[in-house]
Amino acid sequence: MERDIRQGRIEELEQIMALIAECVRVMQEGGSDQWDESYPNAEIITEDIERGTLYVYEEAGAPAGILVLDENQAEQYKEIKWVQTEGPNLIMHRLAVHPRVQGKGIARRLIACAENFAVERGYKSIRMDTYAKNTKALELYRRLGYEVRGEVSFPGRTANFPVLEKILAAAE
């Protein structure tokens, strides 16, 4: 792990939820309903922290960005025609950077950290989805070598979610 990136701690839950709330506010102001008051909620984030799957980018002693890494794929991922069919596959969820520090390369650093994590642990690919209306995230993922494999939909959202994959190692 990069020195500014570490596992999240339960005593940071309030700060992490404040970061998420600020991201939700900015998303909604921009016309995106990707996240809201019900997702991601404190219960989900607490579970991420307790499982040791939530990582924090720390700046000035406080969480400035978060990312969850695990193997939990949404049920909808079964519909996707993946290129890397052999596992294991690492799944990225809930990437968020506080709006006041966006544009400083924090998301890129969190993703690079996820990729290093995956390679070190023998994952064959990284999979994720992002909201179709989140054009900045889509552009970033494409620039970093993630390829769109299809789209899924989630209940209560007005747009689909492109599903992306980055192959980390050739299948044996």
Results as ranks from 00 to 15, higher is better:
111 I>T: 06
56 V>E: 01
119 V>A: 09
148 V>R: 04
119 V>Q: 07
105 G>H: 11
2 E>Y: 05
152 V>L: 12
15 Q>N: 05
105 G>P: 06
66 I>P: 00
163 V>L: 06
43 E>L: 08
6 R>A: 15
87 G>Y: 09
63 P>L: 10
139 E>L: 12
38 S>Y: 09
91 I>V: 15
137 A>V: 10
40 P>G: 06
87 G>K: 08
110 L>V: 04
28 Q>N: 15
49 I>K: 04
99 P>K: 03
49 I>G: 01
27 M>H: 08
156 G>Y: 09
20 I>Y: 03
111 I>R: 03
55 Y>Q: 02
20 I>A: 04
159 A>C: 15
117 F>S: 01
54 L>A: 11
13 L>A: 10
55 Y>F: 14
37 E>V: 09
66 I>H: 03
118 A>F: 13
96 A>S: 13
118 A>M: 13
76 Q>M: 12
101 V>Y: 04
61 G>S: 07
98 H>I: 08
162 P>F: 11
73 Q>F: 11
20 I>R: 02
37 E>W: 04
61 G>T: 04
97 V>N: 02
85 T>I: 13
60 A>V: 05
48 D>Q: 07
73 Q>S: 13
19 L>S: 03
92 M>W: 04
117 F>D: 09
91 I>D: 01
103 G>N: 14
86 E>S: 13
89 N>D: 01
54 L>M: 14
56 V>K: 02
103 G>F: 12
113 C>D: 15
30 G>T: 06
89 N>E: 07
48 D>M: 10
41 N>I: 06
13 L>M: 10
70 D>M: 06
30 G>K: 12
4 D>R: 12
89 N>M: 09
47 E>W: 02
149 R>T: 06
47 E>K: 13
28 Q>I: 11
148 V>A: 09
55 Y>T: 02
128 M>R: 01
135 T>L: 14
123 Y>W: 12
66 I>D: 02
103 G>Q: 14
55 Y>I: 06
159 A>N: 13
98 H>M: 13
117 F>V: 00
42 A>Q: 12
58 E>L: 08
